[in-house]
Structure formats: C-alpha cells, structure tokens
C-alpha cells in the first residue's frame, strides 16, 4: 500500500462516515456541520483524480456558498430561542431495508462490470483545458447556464421577498 492508496482510504472514510452522520444526526446543525466534512472528503477525492480546478470550485461553491445558504435556512426556519434544533425521521426501518438493497445492488453492479480502465496521464493543471473547452465545444451550455443563474437569482429573490399587504 503506497501513499496514494492511504490518502484515498482516508478521504473515502471521511466522506462516508461524515455522510452517515449527516443523514442520521438528530440535530440539524450537527448535520450541516458534518456536511462540511463530506464536501471536504469529496474535494480530496477530486484532487486524487487530478481535477485541481474542480476541487477549488467544490470548496468555494459548496462549502463557501451552498453550506452557508443551508445554515441560513436552518436558522431562519426555527425559533431563535430554541437552542436544540431537532428533527426526527419517519419510516426508518422500511427505508433502511430498501436503501440497503438498493446500495447492495448498485455496489455489486459497480464491482462486477468490466469498465474501460485506462488511466490517462494526469495533466499538470486542468484549468487551461477546461477554459478552452468552455469557450469552444461547450459554449452553448456555458451561455445557457449563465442565463439560468440569472433566472435563478431573480426567481429566488422574488419568491423569498416579503409581500406588501
């Protein structure tokens, strides 16, 4: 076992264990803070796969943006005086059985399939290639996503605005 394998198992364990706490924790704030470690573990996996730019974007957008947004959502949808923010689960046993079967089937498919497994050489940086692809092959999707983000921003602002009575 070399260093690469060791770091992979470390980040995989971090991702899965903190992901388990996200879905099982009674306290919503604990779930949100465990989500940080899940995102961080996924970032580590991206780095191991040679996707440096994507790892930075993951940290900035997920941890810096989405997670803060979710925490704001938690704080705004509960009484501020209520320190213990709890939330229960429903129908746990059928869900565990169903999700367990689903996970077993999924993992067995992943392990038994013959994937095309030819690792290319890791480029020293992916930013040049990604930038070039964004303005050549994927320029239409790039522009559409820009419009989508504008629409989402205006839509979110107008939905969340307090209406004047």
């Amino acid at each position: 076992m070399n260093l690469y394998d060791l770091i992979f198992y470390l980040f995989a364990l971090l991702t899965i264990v903190s992901g388990f706490f996200v879905v099982s924790s009674k306290n919503i704030v604990h779930s949100a803070f465990n989500l940080i470690f899940t995102f961080f573990g996924v970032t580590g996996l991206y780095v191991l796969l040679g996707a440096d730019f994507l790892a930075i974007v993951q940290i900035m957008v997920y941890i810096g943006g989405i997670l803060v947004l979710l925490l704001f959502g938690v704080m705004l949808t509960h009484k501020a005086t209520n320190v213990e923010i709890k939330s229960g689960s429903i129908k746990v046993i059928p869900a565990v059985i169903g999700v367990g079967i689903f996970a077993a089937v999924l993992i067995s498919i992943m392990l038994s399939s013959h994937w095309k497994d030819i690792p290319g050489s890791i480029p020293s940086t992916t930013i040049y290639g990604l930038g070039k692809l964004l303005v050549t092959d994927y320029v239409l999707i790039f522009e559409l996503l820009a419009i989508l983000l504008l629409v989402a921003m205006i839509g979110a602002a107008s939905i969340a605005r307090r209406e004047k009575e």
Partner: peptide
C-alpha cells in the same frame, strides 16, 4: 464510494 454516498 460514490455508490455509498448516493445511497446515503
């Protein structure tokens, strides 16, 4: 790893 995360 991604299968387990998806199931969670």
């Amino acid at each position: 790893v991604s299968s387990i995360l998806f199931s969670l």
